[in-house]
Nucleic acid binder design. Sequence first.
DNA 1: GTATTTGTTGTTGC
DNA 2: TGCAACAACAAATA
Length: 281
Amino acid sequence: MPEFAEVEFFRKRWAQAAAGQRVKSVELHSAAKIFRGANPTAIRRALTGATYVSSEAQAKQMLFRFRRPSPGRKATACLGVHLGMSGELRVEPTGYVALRHDHLVLTTTKHRLVFSDPRMFGRVQFHVGDTAPTWWTKIAPPILSPEFTVEAVGAFLKRRARAPIKAVLLMQERFPGVGNWMADEILWRAAIHPRRLSGSLQPAEVKTLWRECGRVCRLALDTIAGRGSYLPPDLNAHIPKTWLFWHRWEAGGRDPRTGTPLARAETGGRTTCWSPARQKL
DNA sequence: GTATTTGTTGTTGC
DNA sequence: TGCAACAACAAATA
């Protein structure tokens, strides 16, 4: 499920519960796969007794920083979370007992912070040290940053000239955080058919695409993750019915702008939804 | 039983 | 070499 804005929603959910809290205990369940390179024992040892400091979301990843109690030279522990296809972060009461797909549980005085992921495409990464780890710093510059220029998008599309634009929008090295539904939303708003070859886009279309990348990210962030300290009750609580989002999976779904039928087919290896009336090949 | 899933990575082939 | 396509990963749901 989680793309750019959903990831920020989950980060905020944990961050609000963790604010000022100390980790009393750490549970790591099953699934060595989820923890890949990281050593579960090292994670448990480093986080137990540590205090939550801050967190960030970038693309589809999150970084949670903790300060360890006995400050040696390496006082900071960084916990990285990628939610994969089906991961989520939840905040449960202290009496909560971990279920089958809960892989990581951090217990504070007030809550249990749970990372669960049934399909196990997600991952947990870990790093001790005051400088951010490579797996964090190598993430491409955000779409909502000055570095995401129309020139950069144009150049990238040229390099991927023979791939359908839908597939290219899913490439994290240039469109960090964009996933299947956001890609469809962007193309629908930009009125570009998902099967158009990237190299065939005219300069004006590249500019529209670039602009809609920014708009969809901004709107998604505000509506899904909320502004300031506000956190919506659930992920979709405030997404307007005028977005493609609500209609792309509906049987007999219709374009919310034109009322015309939507089309669905696999493109770039993913199920893709578009509005034939507005998005032409 | 079949087909589907909002992600990433490694491999293969052009 | 660089790029594009595809299988694989795992489990729930319809």
